[in-house]
């Protein structure tokens, strides 16, 4: 069964998020940072969509735009046919209950002046769900779900480790009973030894609660462990999208190949002299004439500098890439042969 078989939970079409660059005393707009530049994607129920890419490519901005933490400059975000990008008032509040977020930094994502109980209860208070005692019971239940003791309820975030805090963040995200959780690099700030625990907690919750995830990461080994489908972002655009096995086996975009080659390996036989990514990321402020990856691409041809390539299918309709030489790239042997890498600390 693939994602395309079911009605998707969330569909984003042509989403743009441009940040104006302001200047002068009155802050006139003198340009724009094209943080998200025409992204379309779909998330199927109970599936995980991975979002990978270099730092600054717009992953977080896309995640926040899908959550309506930012209003998209253009484009639509539909959650089960309801337009999240334009919703207001009560409609927006109802939609917010469906999508929640787990944040990257467990040290700043919890208000240091609130107890764990208050933090996890806040969403229930905001949405006026249940009486005080019902809320208290629900908080205990949520803490149990993420594997925390009931005694944590009256303590403050500063008394907990990063991994425990991230569990608290997960409990807060689950409080409203969402069906989609956007996780923005949920383990990248954690100690390697506890990453696996948090990832496995998320997988367990996905199974038990039927959650869909948008999983943002720049760590491909984590993505391989967590995701069903992966979208690779470059300079605000999706340049390749494929089911996880296909992406690791037959990447069809030179940028994806470069990312895969950059995964560090502990196995000396799998260390390669593959070309790492070279060159500067072009500024997200100017729109480029041709393919934005062309200045750094090893496969570049003259045709690349003419038009921005669109996402087109490679072999199957589930695998799409934005490269005019996608067939050649997919067919070329990988510098590293073998299975996709394992997430550290992940149980088989």
């Amino acid at each position: 069964m693939t994602a395309a078989d079911e009605a998707p939970l969330l569909v984003a079409e042509n989403v743009y998020k441009h940040y104006p660059v302001r200047g002068g005393v009155w802050g006139r707009s003198v340009g724009a940072i094209r943080a998200v530049d025409g992204v379309s994607l779909a998330v199927a129920p109970q599936r995980t969509l991975g979002l990978v890419g270099e730092s600054g490519c717009g992953k977080s901005t896309l995640g926040r735009t899908l959550m309506r933490l930012e209003t998209p400059t253009r484009g639509t975000v539909m959650f089960e046919g309801r337009d999240l990008a334009r919703a207001r008032g009560d409609e927006l509040q109802r939609l917010r209950r469906e999508i929640q977020m787990v944040f990257q930094d467990p040290y700043s994502s919890l208000n240091p002046r609130m107890t764990i109980g208050e933090i996890v209860r806040e969403p229930l208070v905001v949405h006026a769900i249940g009486s005080r005692t019902e809320q208290a019971r629900r908080v205990l239940e949520l803490l149990g779900t993420v594997g925390l003791d009931a005694s944590t309820i009256d303590r403050y975030p500063s008394e907990f480790s990063g991994g425990q805090r991230q569990r608290i963040g997960v409990a807060r995200a689950l409080a409203l009973g969402p069906r989609l959780v956007v996780a923005d690099e949920p383990v990248s700030a954690l100690d390697v030894s506890v990453r696996g625990q948090v990832l496995n907690l998320m997988l367990r919750l996905q199974r038990e609660l039927g959650l869909a995830f948008i999983f943002i990461s720049h760590d491909l080994s984590v993505v391989a462990h967590m995701c069903d489908t992966v979208a690779v972002m470059y300079l605000g655009r999706i340049v390749e999208e494929a089911p996880v096995e296909i992406l690791f086996a037959r990447p069809a975009h030179p940028y994806t190949r470069a990312l895969l080659a950059a995964i560090p390996s502990l196995d000396p036989r799998r260390r390669t002299g593959a070309v790492p990514l070279e060159g500067e990321v072009p500024s997200p402020i100017e729109a480029l004439a041709g393919c934005p990856f062309a200045p750094r691409c090893a496969w570049v041809t003259a045709a690349c500098r003419e038009d921005v390539p669109a996402l087109e299918p490679v072999e199957t309709s589930a695998h799409r890439a934005a490269c005019i030489r996608r067939a050649e790239v997919a067919a070329a042997p990988l510098p590293v042969s073998g299975a996709p890498p394992r997430a550290p600390g992940a149980s088989p």
């Binding site: 933490l69 509040q93 930094d105 994502s109 807060r172």
Partner: peptide, 14 residues
């Protein structure tokens, strides 16, 4: 810009 503020926004706090 701290994430706890984003979190509050994400669950719809006024």
């Amino acid at each position: 810009t701290r994430e706890y503020c984003l979190a509050a926004k994400s669950y719809g706090a006024s």
